[in-house]
Design a protein around this nucleic acid. Sequence first.
DNA 1: TTTTATATGTTATATTATAACATAACATAA
DNA 2: TTATGTTATGTTATAATATAACATATAAAA
Lengths: 172, 172
Amino acid sequence: MLTNSRLVHQPHDHGRCINAALSRANNLCTEKGVRLTPTRESVLRLLWQSHQPLGAYQVQDQLSKLTGKSIAPPTIYRAIEFLSDLGLVHRLASLNAYIGCPFPNSEHSNLFMICNSCGSAAEVAHTALNDVLQNASEKAQFKLESQSIELFGLCPQCSQDTTQATEHKAHG
Amino acid sequence: MLTNSRLVHQPHDHGRCINAALSRANNLCTEKGVRLTPTRESVLRLLWQSHQPLGAYQVQDQLSKLTGKSIAPPTIYRAIEFLSDLGLVHRLASLNAYIGCPFPNSEHSNLFMICNSCGSAAEVAHTALNDVLQNASEKAQFKLESQSIELFGLCPQCSQDTTQATEHKAHG
DNA sequence: TTTTATATGTTATATTATAACATAACATAA
DNA sequence: TTATGTTATGTTATAATATAACATATAAAA
């Protein structure tokens, strides 16, 4: 099970996340012979600003502020589509939001653990899970092509906070 | 693994699906002391008209035609919310669409197999899968509260059609 | 440097969903 | 039975998300 869960839910040097993501993006674009234009790079950078997924219009706002120009939705959606096609960005359907992919080269589960409290989302690649889904599909004679798995709950950090709050309440 | 997959993807007496769903709904509403009003019943019936999930505005259209009155979106969304709270209806996030739940009393996986070709969606309840997800969550110290699992691919029927089409092509 | 392909700008609009407030229907108690 | 509270629906407006269609600009290749 490969995940960025620890990183997402703990204080860390987030600059390294961003740099790593940009580096991966540059390599992949070179490899595929496509261009990581300034707009696309900025969008990717914004989606990596935190580990919380962003809506397209949040990206729009932030990019507009960043550049001082007003930017229309299609520009954002195009950049997201480009990044998404390369596997650098994922869409979280239940949130209508987008997030950078921490391991675009690995086999994917498209599994996300989304915190109901702080909104952070960790991605998980889980071979055994994929096998279970593949088996289930075969049993149902369903030819599996892609998948979207979104788990909701409390991240380690928020879970701890809740416990403490409850304890505090109990004592008060 | 409990699923309505066979039923969904094969010709069957669909009236029985609808009747069963309405009967379950009536029982559940009685049990919970809430009302299955005509609007709510109609919406449930429409969502059971086929095994393809429907968008809220599709439901609106059909209900308007059915009653001859024009019906505004909030009415539809309220009915869907009511049914959804009772577990009688699910939302498929990736499609922005809604579908009747075939086994509202069973433990849920919230797992759907959605056909990319015909649009049908079968629901699956899969204890072993739930265990895998629970374990993965625990490993990540994530307190799992709910989940949404959507698989995309080809249903048995469409998969067969594709194979035949390919064979046909190969022969032609 | 023309040509071609790719990327972005711009305007308008489609699609999905909800807020806010008014009215109606139902349930219960006085 | 009427008064009262609760639940459900009607109505209007608008928020939030996403895309179509066409014009322009930028980069790459011939």
